[in-house]
Design a protein around this nucleic acid. Sequence first.
DNA 1: AATGAATGAGCTTTCATTCAT
DNA 2: GATGAATGAAAGCTCATTCAT
Lengths: 225, 225, 225, 225
Amino acid sequence: MSAGRGAPVSARAAGGGQPAAARLTAERRAQITKAAGELFARRGYHAATMRDIALRVGVSPGLIYNYVEDKEELLLLVLDSLLDAYASSIPAALAGLRDPLARFAAAVDTYCRIVAERPEATLLAYQESRSLRRSLREHIKRREVETNALIADCISDGIAQGLFRPVDAELTAYRVVMMAHGWALKTWRLAGRMTIDDYIADSLEMLLGALLTPLGAQRRAEAAR
Amino acid sequence: MSAGRGAPVSARAAGGGQPAAARLTAERRAQITKAAGELFARRGYHAATMRDIALRVGVSPGLIYNYVEDKEELLLLVLDSLLDAYASSIPAALAGLRDPLARFAAAVDTYCRIVAERPEATLLAYQESRSLRRSLREHIKRREVETNALIADCISDGIAQGLFRPVDAELTAYRVVMMAHGWALKTWRLAGRMTIDDYIADSLEMLLGALLTPLGAQRRAEAAR
Amino acid sequence: MSAGRGAPVSARAAGGGQPAAARLTAERRAQITKAAGELFARRGYHAATMRDIALRVGVSPGLIYNYVEDKEELLLLVLDSLLDAYASSIPAALAGLRDPLARFAAAVDTYCRIVAERPEATLLAYQESRSLRRSLREHIKRREVETNALIADCISDGIAQGLFRPVDAELTAYRVVMMAHGWALKTWRLAGRMTIDDYIADSLEMLLGALLTPLGAQRRAEAAR
Amino acid sequence: MSAGRGAPVSARAAGGGQPAAARLTAERRAQITKAAGELFARRGYHAATMRDIALRVGVSPGLIYNYVEDKEELLLLVLDSLLDAYASSIPAALAGLRDPLARFAAAVDTYCRIVAERPEATLLAYQESRSLRRSLREHIKRREVETNALIADCISDGIAQGLFRPVDAELTAYRVVMMAHGWALKTWRLAGRMTIDDYIADSLEMLLGALLTPLGAQRRAEAAR
DNA sequence: AATGAATGAGCTTTCATTCAT
DNA sequence: GATGAATGAAAGCTCATTCAT
């Protein structure tokens, strides 16, 4: 799950086909990505130096370039790891659920909690994806769309079953995502005055208020009983 | 309105008390701020060099330091100019309005349109306010709170008149702001698929859906006729 | 007495032959030199900026260049002013004295006290005379030699009258000067542990110990009675 | 002996504990210090640029910052290397000597010769120690005091054995140091007219003239036979 | 695979100096 | 004489990146 499908990431040290070596390589890359993520989050992309990152991993600066082409690519890896979280956690949360309402609620909840776990990573995406060269930026964009689709599908299901009004599912998914990202933007202001649970509950309420058909509302009331 | 109340901005070249000279100074500073804002928006704070900014103003790099202490202070000036827009436009938009519903709608509308006019500036605020030294950051924070209060007051009025549910006005103002900023975050994805007018209409719908009391809803329906 | 004989100092603003204007010019130049001297002393030649100096004089930076070609020339003026002090005070101190011993003592005493009054100026001479372009450096050198001659002459007199041993007068004058400058060098270490009076007394003792003939010593003893 | 005891000098590139690497690091630092010393001496601290220094070492400007925090620290290293010379040469010169007179003479002689070897370095200490930030300045001051103590101890011994008059040993050590430094100050004037040997002999004569008790003088006369 | 010394382009910032007013 | 906004060269310093070992 490391870098999504078709990640345009260099594999300098990928070596041959030895699965053992490949695993080690993947681990190293993960180590590096984690360290970079933490430092980017704490200090910002530009302020975090490759030297710092190497130090934190406990290797030499040169080594990083065996696993990564660029500092930019390191940023990509970090952003990608956040997208990985969505791509794996949301489907897992939806796994057992059939009801579109429940599925939608679960998707929103999961998405928000991932944002809340690493709010700086979400910020980073906005802050620095501009720094990426086009190819990498495209990659991120593509994966964002994939993630959005996870939510959009829930909405489409709801519409198909007459629970949601016939909105543009994709656009509405964007609104969900923006709401979730809102927490990352304002977390340092809101923290202490509101919990993530409150935030999710309120957001869901708003979204459903705008989304539910009378039938949907009725179902929801029944489910709440 | 140049830099808010008590902006901690150096005035090296402010020189004497001659109002003529002072105006020239202010104009130069505005020029520089504008150029910096554009470049920061386009290339990001770190990638935009002082040389570039000077070039764009049509002066030498050294001159900028007659009007600004630092590159950081230039960032402050840029961020401040955005806050100036809120601080002047929102009160202007509210000027003739008495009805809390109309006032709230006007505030949201105005806020969103300012964001939409310079979405990159909003992004910049999130991107780089971390780069500011503490004193400047505090200044920005203070002004943000002031801006928020403009919205929170509308909400409090609505509550007082029984049109809005008795929510925490300040917290709800944050939700409004987040919604508005959402446009900046996703403008490059949404643009073309949704106009700012749609976005505002939808957002308002959601917010009011969550906010209105039955009385409020009735009033709104009447007003819409 | 301002700049010694034949000072190679620009006279841009010297204007015509109006003595009134010339006096004003000289006063301005003196003001500037004084301010520069103080700032050079306090902050060092390089760290003191023309802007600071202008500020201290209460004029604009540009004006200084009406009275001085260069920052270097300003340094020259400052160093020259110290040499002026020697050139005027030592002859004054020797004025009424006939006895070579008394004259020598008076010369040493005066020299040391001038050093002690502005120790940083003495340091400045060593610190920065290297910074001067050749022509200005030569000027300073020449004036130093003149000052040395004031002391050397006392020594020659003493030798002629059989009170001092037949040393090389010029070289011995250098030793006197070095001793005096020692106070400037170490003033910040010595200050508090030794007064300038003690220092002068000790120094004189040493110098005379090395210099006096038996006849000289006898004269000195008599004089002390 | 590289940087005295507890020198507060950064060791960025010091890296691991491998003695081989450490030695290389020390060598590089020594190279850089040497080049800096020469350029500071020739052109002055401010006029010598980091680029010049790098060029002279034959490395890139950036590399210097692997071995030194700052240009200031480079100055410290240069000044420290002079103090190293005192700290190692004077004890070596005193090694076999028991007689306080001989020890004092040897200390003075050694001190003066070190000054004479690198007169510009001595000047540099006066010129630019003001440029050092406080912590580094303190370091230099401390080491100067240590060096002074080497001489003061000789004087104390002489006093204890009744050969020197009961002067303040520390203060007298200062006089010795000032005399030695005098050579640095005036070397460019004196050179050619006086050798360092003459200078030392004369200085010693003066100092002993002021210092010896009758007993001391007698001993000296005996030793001279 | 791993090191880390070395590179060098390029940044922000300073400040002596000029010149239109 | 006086101003001070403007210049622009040049400085110190950083850091992503390379490569011999």
